[in-house]
Amino acid sequence: MVDTALSNAGPDARPHPRGGLQRPLAAGWAHLRGRAGTGSLVPWLYLAPTLVLLAVFTYWPLIHTAYLSLVEWNLNPGQPARFVGLDNYSRVAGSNLFQAALGNTLVYLAASIPLKVLLPIPIAVFLWSLGSKGHIYRAVLFLPTLISFVVVGVAVMWILNPIFGYAKQYAAMIGIRMPNLMADPDTAIWVIIVVSSWKVLGFNVLLYLAGLASINRDYIEAMRMDGAGDGTIFTRLIWPLLTPTLMFVLISTLIFTMQQVFTPIDLMTQGGPSNSTTNLFYMVYQYSFVTFDVGGGAAGTVMLFLLLMVMALVQLRLIDRRVQYKQ
């Protein structure tokens, strides 16, 4: 099974622990094989594609963005970038768009706690109690995770279409005049919130089911024998044991929500009507690629980055605790 052409060098080809580049080239590439020592170049060859790509397309752009946040530029290569210091930050922070985006971001986040984080818990507990019989429910609820948000968005726009959508026609049958939800600044954001919650529901249910799977069902039988009801079992046993999963779902959902709603915002409202649905992510896009205000977009990006880093640090701490808990 081992390639003979490569293995004929035999055990002699084992590299010196400090082999690497010092070995004469006459030894060929043999020193690149076998168990490499600490100073070897070999692991770096395996890592090179990943590290180069991440450096060029993830880490360098972060630094470059920090620079762009200090200049005034409109993406036109013929136009030189003008250094303006921290002006972009004060300009963005003072803008109506930023204030609307920040406020809406808080609405998106606050609404996602009951809808995306808490609602899946009773559903998961119920499915867990069903055992394998609940599989069909699980499969159907998971479907929206797989479908792109463009597909979901187009379908929602079609169903809610103010002139001939299904929602309007069915509402008319029971005598209700369907309002144009997407055109009203008070309701458009809720359409996006409900649809994005619907889309992630099945996924979060699965996360809770994974957490519930670690609960020993014997405890429940024991509590039953002692006369405990459903309520007691939930508050005294399931809830405490589910808390680590809950914390994980909470933070990951909050971080995810900010990005998740980008697609429906862009597709269904483009931030409107009158900035009522835009969030910080979409605002950065609006600055950069709708008005081509590179400095403003970059300044918004840096502020968003700081916010996300804080959330990610909290998440990392929680994951550490979760792992320890599992062990």
């Binding site: 397309f57 993830t58 360098w60 752009p61 972060l62 470059h64 963005t65 762009l68 993406l75 990005q259 980008f262 992510f281 950065v284 896009y285 950069s288 690629f289 590179v294 977009g297 970059a298 990006t301 968003l304 980055f305 996300l308």
Partner: peptide, 8 residues
């Protein structure tokens, strides 16, 4: 979103 401008 955080890296799009430089990559663009």
């Amino acid at each position: 979103v955080l890296t799009m401008l430089p990559i663009y």
